[in-house]
């Protein structure tokens, strides 16, 4: 017998699927940005300071 769980048991499936789709799209953006800064670097434009250091400021400002 096939058993389908009631909807309230697993609200996670949709979240997983949508996350995978959105992340794939956004990952492309990150990849493009990385190559763009490499191209800029080739022409002597300095990359921005490592973003990591700004994170704590973000969280507290």
């Amino acid at each position: 017998m096939h058993f389908t769980p009631p909807p309230y048991l697993d609200p996670g499936s949709g979240s997983f699927i949508i996350q995978i789709l959105i992340a794939a799209l956004l990952g492309l953006g990150v990849a493009l940005r990385a190559s763009w800064s490499k191209i800029k670097g080739y022409f002597g434009v300095k990359p921005k300071a490592e973003e990591e250091d700004n994170d704590s400021a973000d969280a507290s400002d």
Binding site: P11, G14, A24, L28
Partner: peptide
């Protein structure tokens, strides 16, 4: 996200399958 939750609410998924991946770059993007 809310519509996807509704649509897939009664479906099981296998996140480890090949296409079901979020690589590190995609994770940072998210």
């Amino acid at each position: 996200h809310a519509s996807a939750q509704k649509r897939y609410s009664d479906k099981a998924i296998e996140p480890r399958k090949g296409a079901m991946r979020v690589n590190q770059q995609a994770m940072i993007g998210l």
